[in-house]
Design a binder for these strands. Sequence first.
DNA 1: GGTGCGATTGCA
DNA 2: GCAATCGCACCA
Length: 189
Amino acid sequence: MSEDRLPLAFYRREALDVARDLLGRLLCRRLPDGTVLRGRLVEVEAYDGPTDRASHAYRGLTRRNAPMFEAGGVAYVYLIYGMHHCVNVVTGDAGHPAAILLRAAESPVAALSASGPGRLTRAFRIDRVLDGVPLTGDVLWVERGQTVADSSVKRTRRIGVGYAGSWARRRYRFLLRDHPSVSGPRNLR
DNA sequence: GGTGCGATTGCA
DNA sequence: GCAATCGCACCA
């Protein structure tokens, strides 16, 4: 337990605000044996609302995306390509599907520096068992860490959502400028 | 009940 | 450039 843990109110805001504010925070994962893994978030992406064509919620509520429709402050974990897990932080009000995909983390512990959503979940041992868990619990949470200045935050279009038409060009990806751990292209607009 | 594919990664 | 690998969304 840490008093540095971000409260529910942090998550129950606009997705883009939460995404921006997640940079520099500490993703924390307690393993079954009690070990706590911590890594600094350096790249995230927002998926916001029922009209976001890149979002899993675009076609409405389904069994998979149900956590996205919950009130902010829970995890949304899914399996992609049959082999990689991706972890999201759900944001906003109940009924408004929105979540932030965690794409990269950095840590002094080499094994916890992970570039890419699939690598991040592998490093932090996050799988679908954690789908829907509250971020106020003792399994998965985010701590205050150190906030980052606007001047070091870069915004680009999201990765791997080219099918989303004009939504693919929205600058919903937030990353630390020039940080070595971010995944994928760094020079997008 | 059958089919197509993905918010990715690693290797040729 | 492309295969891996499977849950599930969607259609019938």
